[in-house]
Nucleic acid binder design. Sequence first.
DNA 1: GGCAGTCATGTTAGCCATATCATACTAGAA
DNA 2: TTCTAGTATGATATGGCTAACATGACTGCC
Lengths: 345, 345
Amino acid sequence: MSQTRQPEIRRPLTLRDVSEACGVSEMTVSRVLRNREDVSPATREKVLNTARALGYVPNKIAGGLASQQVNLVAVIVPSLSNMVFPEVLTGISEALDDTGLQPVFGVTGYSAEKEEEVLYEMLSWRPSGAIIAGLEHTDAARAMLENAGIPIVEIMDSDGTPIDSVVGISHRLAGMQMADAIVAAGYRRIGFLGSKMTSDHRARKRMQGLTDGLATHGLELADTELYSGGSALKKGREMTEAILSRTADLDFLYYSNDMIGAGGLLYCLSKGYDIPGQLGMAGFNGVDFLDGLPMKLATIDACRHEIGVQAANIIAGKDQGGVIGGHRVELTPQLVHGDTMRAPS
Amino acid sequence: MSQTRQPEIRRPLTLRDVSEACGVSEMTVSRVLRNREDVSPATREKVLNTARALGYVPNKIAGGLASQQVNLVAVIVPSLSNMVFPEVLTGISEALDDTGLQPVFGVTGYSAEKEEEVLYEMLSWRPSGAIIAGLEHTDAARAMLENAGIPIVEIMDSDGTPIDSVVGISHRLAGMQMADAIVAAGYRRIGFLGSKMTSDHRARKRMQGLTDGLATHGLELADTELYSGGSALKKGREMTEAILSRTADLDFLYYSNDMIGAGGLLYCLSKGYDIPGQLGMAGFNGVDFLDGLPMKLATIDACRHEIGVQAANIIAGKDQGGVIGGHRVELTPQLVHGDTMRAPS
DNA sequence: GGCAGTCATGTTAGCCATATCATACTAGAA
DNA sequence: TTCTAGTATGATATGGCTAACATGACTGCC
């Protein structure tokens, strides 16, 4: 005797299943599950219990199509492999938490083409807003953003013309600010250590700002050392060793980010350099987990968490006084002297 | 004379707009944009040009509803604020890159309730699969996962019973392995430094494994120091100072993660401890950006990137020999002796 | 009692794609 | 020439939900 049990083709549950199971219309169930008014407490209770008992999970695909709105926010960043962007994402995540909006992350690997692809993919979900790192995009990407008809916030950088809103700092100014501080502290033979990556526009602008700033004091970079890939801390060591052995009379090392700076700092300490007397050092970002290093590296805080929060607030329409787009938030990066720069003379 | 310009109510573009603009049916446009066969090269070309010119972006909401499939993979992790999970996400991202599948990340903040919420939210998008950190979930979350009718991969941890597939390491074994190594190296007075967070199940299991392992050698922890929040590197310093001043005769410090371990290491070096002779140290995770520290901290590699890749491969159905679910991949964590443990005596 | 005004719920008509089946048309075989 | 097969395209019917409007049961007031 073969078993005659129904083969149980578990059709996914729909609103209809819930509505039939508790004897109300689909519309009423829908209203309950979206917490709309105008449902009697008794009915609400009944529906909620049934839905829970069945294990019903609403289908936002259908819901989004019907209502023409989707509670997603597209967030596009170049990388997750250093702490910078995860911190921004954390800020975004926190700020969106009580808004009913949900961030969706995409990663471009610092490639403009990949950015275009990711953007296309994301926009095809018709999100309620988009947050994207940087102001430099391909023409196609820019066109997509302009035509999407949703609020766009470009973040991290404020040196350029935004499509809609922008939240960031001026990396050019940050570079110049550092140049001024270095010169004010009396350093003159300055070395630059950074990444080979030309597509990291913000790092490029910082370097530009630094050289321009030095130029206003009649100085220029005495040497430069670039890297790509690998453990940043270790690279910092190696690069520092390389640049110091090549140009022994450097009295300041500017690192394009804190991680390589930390590596450099550890190297110099182990070699017995007198810091900040003989040799000054500074990084960029204000990464706070480096607080535990033997000395506190001078740096400029990139306001990463704050940028995430503010960008998210713009998308969520918090504190906007009714204005919809075109916000410009330029945060002022704070220079932290730390222990690796002499006090201004 | 008031302007009579059409008020330009930019209705979002649909397939119909494209189809009308180039004189074919919607169906044909749809086929072209999804790269289906059976469209003549001439038509394809024409459609592609029109779509590009109009700036049409397909609506996956509608597409997903019609086709009953969505190319998203839900990825749920506890946190983005240390490098551990970003590395896993990077692995997932890479492995999915050529599959047409797209990861969507959700963050739970180590809270079971929040996990449940995030999961509900994510499943309501009807993803093609889900990757979720850990084996411990609320009953409701477990039920949702079981009923979702999609492949589920629980990651990071293999100590327990998975819902469907699992990719991870045994944190219990990792703890025991470390205990064995510590004892083999001749250390006897062992201190534990870790997080207060009871909801980090994997950290808990590592500690359990460590104490159980020590017990098999007739040892127990001599002291314990816990922390919460803050910069891990700094906390590592502070905790180390605290535990060493409280229990001066400790000869080994086991840290629940590499970051606090690194802080502790820097502290001990600055205080002139003889490492690994007088005092041994070890962490957990194998975070490679710590490679630049003055000494290499002993650690156990948690295979984070690899876990991400393998989990993604299971969802994508790569190399599965046709099997759909129920995979069990237990990676073998490698103990790295580094410079902070004596060689086994 | 009759009627406007509420409140709770139901009905209908899409939302924008895609699966499926139907239909022209072409080319080659019998 | 006629018929079969195959190719390119189109018509139709959903998919699961929600907006907008419709309904019906009450309430309370003149």
